[in-house]
């Protein structure tokens, strides 16, 4: 993609985000503008049971609920954007600020295909098609063709500059699949978050927890004796110190994936909040100069977010590789 297309896409996405805000404004004109912007941002950050493109165009998504040992499946169109309740198999559900509640006080567990789940599925299919096609292109010739030409340097970068230096030549191969998948998944889904589709999958703690948990499980499962030795019985320190260090080290192993989870979540959330707040300033200023200034700032910020999208994917992959490296490292030097 050349730089012109890139800038064009960015301008379009900023404008489209603007138009969403503008429409919201037009409809609830009587409310205080600041509260309204806050609400729009909060709404944008939340997952939803409908896939709303504009006010006129929205797609209902399937709702899957596990209540008291029963599975209830129905379409989110039955809620009419949270205005009505729906009764299925004798249980009445309604939408309360994006959460599904049951009328008689049962606690349904929500396994619905929400907007975010839809996008996880889209990225799932996209990556599957993209990379299997890339793999097939190698059967024809040793050099990549089409998409592969763009993706291969990234794949090689992850292998040569992330996996090998951090994990080591000997063990890196078994982690490659995870590192590559997690990098491309986070990157692509972050980029989706910057499009005017209004999704932001990685600013859900459930998503980042899932990703960080896989890193943690992989680290723990593949760790060698020396890794555990360094946690529970630190070599080279006096015995009383060993008892103090063990819980600290053990806590450290949990803090590592926790910081992975928080970092991705917070960066993406903060990026979205700041970007939308600056867009919101346009409606607060209502003036020619202030609004164009906010637009310029929002544009610059969108560019920065584009960088952050890749950087967070890089850092997540990098730190995962670092943790894997510490798990398989052989300490024979002391």
């Amino acid at each position: 993609m050349n730089i012109k297309t890139l800038i064009f896409t960015l301008v379009i996405s900023v404008f489209s985000s603007l138009s969403i805000l503008a429409e919201e404004h037009a409809i609830h004109g009587e409310k205080d503008i600041k509260t309204e912007i806050k609400e729009t941002i909060a709404h944008h950050l939340m997952d939803s049971h409908d896939f709303i493109l504009t006010h006129d165009l929205s797609f209902p998504l399937p709702i899957i609920l596990y209540t008291d040992g029963n599975l209830d499946i129905f379409s989110s169109a039955n809620f009419h954007h949270g205005t009505t309740s729906h009764t299925v198999n004798g249980r009445t559900y309604s939408l309360d600020h994006g959460h599904i509640v049951e009328a008689s006080g049962l606690h349904p567990i929500d396994f619905s295909i929400t907007k975010n789940v839809t996008f996880i599925m889209i990225v799932f299919l996209m990556m599957l098609i993209m990379f299997t096609r890339m793999a097939k292109s190698y059967k024809k010739s040793a050099l990549p063709s089409g998409m592969g030409r763009l993706l291969e340097p990234i794949v090689l970068y992850i292998r040569d500059d992330i996996a090998i230096p951090n994990i080591g030549e000997k063990h890196y191969k078994k982690y490659m699949s995870y590192l590559l998948t997690v990098f491309f998944f986070i990157w692509i889904i972050n980029l989706f978050g910057l499009t005017p589709l209004g999704v932001n999958v990685t600013n859900n703690i459930a998503v980042t927890l899932s990703l960080a948990l896989i890193t943690y499980v992989l680290t723990t499962v593949t760790a060698n004796k020396s890794y555990w030795g360094h946690i529970f019985w630190m070599p080279g320190v006096p015995v009383p110190m060993k008892f103090i260090l063990a819980p600290i080290e053990l806590l450290g192993t949990i803090i590592k994936p926790f910081s992975l989870m928080i970092r991705l979540y917070a960066n993406i959330t903060a990026g979205h909040v700041v970007l939308m707040s600056i867009l919101g300033l346009i409606f607060i200023f209502k003036g020619w100069i202030g609004s164009s200034l906010s637009f310029g700032l929002a544009f610059a910020l969108a560019l920065l977010e584009l960088l952050v999208a890749a950087l967070q994917a890089y850092i997540f992959t990098m730190l995962s590789a670092l943790y894997f490296g510490s798990a398989v490292e052989e300490h024979d030097d002391h």
Binding site: F111, I120, L128, T132, L180, T181, F185, A206, V207
Partner: peptide, 23 residues
């Protein structure tokens, strides 16, 4: 919980599928 469930399921499936067919 739902998002966590779907994310974990789809992501692990993605790793395994891509490992076999792509990476």
């Amino acid at each position: 919980v739902g998002l966590f469930f779907w994310q974990s399921l789809l992501f692990i499936a993605l790793i395994l599928l891509l490992k076999k067919f792509a990476w």
